[in-house]
Simulated scan of single mutants.
Amino acid sequence: MEKKRSAAQADTGKAKFIALSEQIIERIKSGELQPGDQIPSENELIKTFKVSNTTARKTLLEIESKGWARRIKGKGTYVLNRTEDHHLLRTLGSIYATRRGFHDSLIAEGFTPRNIVLEKTILQDGISTEINGRHFIVEGPVLKLHQLRYADDLLMKDEVKYISLTLCPKINRIPTEVSYFKVYEDTYHLKISEVQQTLSVRILEPNTTNFELSKPTPAFVLDSAVICEADKVVEIEQSYYHGDKYKFAVIASPEHAH
């Protein structure tokens, strides 16, 4: 890495910001930086590569002008999704990805998100599910939120969330496009201790789901539970992802392995 840094600084044949932008674009091409990932900020570029404010700013503008990233005001610069057919990469086991939320992830990747709320009701009884051999229960009352998630007018996700109104009172008044994970942390000051997830595949038949399918199509089925301190379950999710439009990655944490 030191060799690359010095090359970006010492290349007299091209401007520093061009050399540095090419280096970061190579990280995108290699997959080191994935669609939706945040590119180092101006301050990070200045600190890491010992360049001026102007060079750092021009570097980010160069990457954006070449179509590799998009700057979102007040948030940063993110790698755009350049895959064919709107394939999206989602990472299981990533707290960062979960915290950012589906809506903001699409924006970061350059898509236009749209939500259609099919059901938003309060259930007095609780809800339970089994994930990875463990039983999880959200005690009532529970907010049931069923919404369809679109990217550029293409239905990507059929999502159902069950959220504890005991742990998150009045959360039903919050807009549905938010990252609920961040709301749990920032608004209700819950300390998330773990996220349990399982992913399976199911074949969906035409005219039997909210997806407009012309032929039997595989769908990813995600079951997840968000757990905070004292083993309290704040959220259970049961969602379908369009199988032709998604790829999933998994983060392994060896230090947590048993």
Rank of each mutant, 00 (worst) to 15 (best):
K3A: 14
K4V: 13
R5Y: 14
A8C: 14
D11I: 11
G13M: 15
K14E: 12
F17M: 12
S21T: 06
E22P: 02
I24P: 00
I24C: 01
S30A: 13
P35N: 08
G36I: 01
D37P: 00
I39N: 01
S52K: 10
T54V: 15
K66T: 14
I72T: 03
K75C: 06
G76C: 09
V79K: 00
L88F: 10
L88H: 09
T91I: 13
T91S: 10
S94D: 07
S94P: 03
I95D: 15
R99N: 10
R99C: 08
H103A: 08
S105N: 10
S105K: 02
F111C: 00
F111I: 04
F111D: 03
L118A: 10
T121E: 12
Q124F: 00
D125K: 12
I127W: 03
F136N: 01
I137F: 05
I137G: 02
V142N: 01
K144A: 13
D153T: 07
K157S: 10
T166Y: 00
K170A: 12
R173W: 11
Y184D: 01
E185K: 08
E194N: 14
Q197H: 05
L199Y: 06
R202H: 13
I203M: 13
I203H: 10
E205P: 03
P218K: 06
S224M: 11
E229M: 11
K232I: 10
I236K: 01
S239P: 04
H242Y: 09
Y246L: 06
K247C: 09
A252S: 15
S253T: 15
H258Q: 13
H258C: 09
